[in-house]
Design a protein around this nucleic acid. Structure first.
Lengths: 334, 334
DNA sequence: ATCGGTATCGACACCGTTATCGATACCGGG
DNA sequence: CCCGGTATCGATAACGGTGTCGATACCGAT
């Protein structure tokens, strides 16, 4: 670990000015091919790593896009991220992830932290924020995209699906198939606004046809197969007549399916199941579960494209409000 | 979106010097409680967001810890991350995640990018890197921890488990239970060095008792339940006499279990199954799968603690080499 | 009243890079 | 051979904060 190597050192070794070295290493014009090669050679052999803090301060530009999500522990947000990365790949921009833990206060502090690095764009999951967060988003001098959800009042750009609509759509499908004794099982309900909206849309959809929820469970912990299995078991124990359960996520509905397998219940004969998200990784189970696709990858792509476009053009972008359609796939459990 | 607010503006509004405003907002000493309150009030109402680029350049310190992982799409690395976050939570440091996509060239570029931000520490998954990456890690003027794996030659600090040992241990357990017709199914084998080491340790473990692998499948795509199911189906079709399959990951072994369920095979009567990682989210299946715990959370915690400690003390840390013990849990499928 | 000590604050330099603009060298055309 | 134009390069001033150290005010003790 030798003493840190600065641009001036590289320049001195190459016998040029700092300015020329800087240009050469950034691929900027006004450097002859020969000197450029020499400088690059020296930088490489000596392991020079440019100080982007200084560079960004000077150039007033940071090639980072801040992405703030509630969690990485589900499969949901990594897929949004991969959509973002895919689009950003062919640009100098890089995504930087922050995790808010489904906590609006924490979200505020994470966003404040990220904005303090003056990113080229900010993508944040959800429309619900503290007042201070909303102010920051409004005043941020970079494009801001709120993703995943469109049911609410976006601060700037917005790309997502309507979770109200997703819940309502599933209610329609379930009712259309004749189910009437319906339960709901959700996780993280206090904090997960989108799950709550699905729940709301779902009960509204039922109510529209004069059906009320027969039972429900709002679990505050994380989703897991185990949790889904246990809650399903409990709910069916106290309500054996239920003929359908709607879950806040696929992971939970898989747990439900596991309970049914163990209990010898036929699905959907004895009981129908439906989840949400359409997670690829859960394909391959005994039955293909009914679910709604949340368009995660595409949401990520579109959000990233908004950032890119607003970078190319000279700001003053008109606001984008992209409402994608959540497609229901019935699978074999409805 | 008003014109950007600088520290000097806040200072002017508060009628103090930039220096005093800076101190007040950072909670530094030498500011009276009254002026501090006033400055904070002004900063809050006007929505001042400090420019950490300038601040970091000046103070020569960045409260970020770079974390480079191959992927976020499995459950594996998010758990390492949560261990890191948990430890960093009570410090000013924040983790920043970079994804290398199981590609050493991409890893090099991600690490170069992260180091150019002069983080307070770097945590990177794996011991295999390009030569250029190794040089960067050596020369980085921050603590560097290679995590997950200990089978190799760490550049600096190292926290992980031996995947050779993990594979060997599972081989022992499988042989001890009398299985002799054994297959292996792995994903990402060309790029996932740790999976390859488990494979190697596994075959060595078998060889030690004069057993050779009866069949194997090295699939290059990502892990998924579906893939596990299909590959298991194919392998059992061409080798019906197999009595045990070892998978490179739990997600794949779940797929194997799903095939057995569908095919009416009894587990472990007709065929035994074992995976790797001990993923919590997959608990709750019909059978608890045999697996090896990869100590993900603890690895993250320990790595973060190394960074913290080396920050407190004045560098010159002695190298840490933490070899955790991967515990096998037999479950009900062996 | 004088003095040393502490609390509070500000002026100035500096962090490592890049934007700007001027300087120099070199080239072909008239 | 002179001249305008281009290619190449360097000196200087930022960028927006913070470290340092000196200045000032205020306090109780002598």
């Amino acid at each position: 670990m030798t003493k840190k190597l600065l641009l001036k050192d590289v320049a001195k070794l190459a016998g040029v000015s700092e300015m020329t070295a800087s240009r050469a290493l950034r691929g900027a014009p006004d450097v002859s091919a020969k000197t450029k090669a020499k400088i690059e050679e020296i930088a490489r052999t000596h392991g020079y790593v440019p100080n982007r803090i200084a560079g960004s301060l000077s150039s007033q530009s940071v090639n980072l896009v801040a992405v703030v999500v509630p969690s990485l522990n589900s499969f949901v947000f990594p897929e949004v991220l991969s959509g973002i990365s895919a689009v950003l790949k062919e640009s100098p921009l890089k995504p930087v992830v922050g995790v808010s833990g489904y906590d609006l206060e924490e979200e505020e502090s994470v966003i404040r932290e990220m904005l303090s690095w003056r990113p080229s764009g900010l993508i944040v999951a959800g429309l619900e924020h503290t007042e201070a967060t909303r102010r920051m988003l409004q005043q941020a001098d970079c494009p801001v995209v709120e993703v995943m959800d469109v049911d609410g009042d976006p601060v700037r750009h917005c790309v997502g699906i309507s979770h109200l609509q997703a819940g309502g759509g599933m209610a329609e499908q379930i009712l259309a198939r004749g189910y009437r004794s319906i339960g709901f099982i959700g996780t993280k309900m206090p904090q997960d606004f989108r799950a709550r909206k699905r729940f709301e849309g779902f009960t509204d959809g039922l109510a529209a046809q004069n059906v009320t929820l027969s039972d429900m469970e709002h679990y505050s912990g994380e989703s897991s197969i185990q949790t889904g299995r246990q809650l399903t078991s409990q709910m069916l124990a106290r309500n054996p007549h239920l003929d359908c359960i709607y879950y806040s996520s696929d992971v939970m509905s898989v747990g439900g399916l596991m309970h049914c397998l163990a209990a010898g219940l036929s699905v959907p004969g004895d009981i129908a199941l439906a989840g949400f998200n359409n997670l690829q990784i859960l394909q391959g189970l005994p039955l293909q579960l009914a679910t709604t696709d949340a368009c995660r990858h595409e949401i990520g792509e579109r959000a990233a494209r908004i950032i890119l476009k607003s970078r190319e053009t000279g700001k003053a972008e008109e606001l984008v409000f992209d409402r994608l359609t959540p497609a229901i796939s019935l699978g074999e459990t409805l």
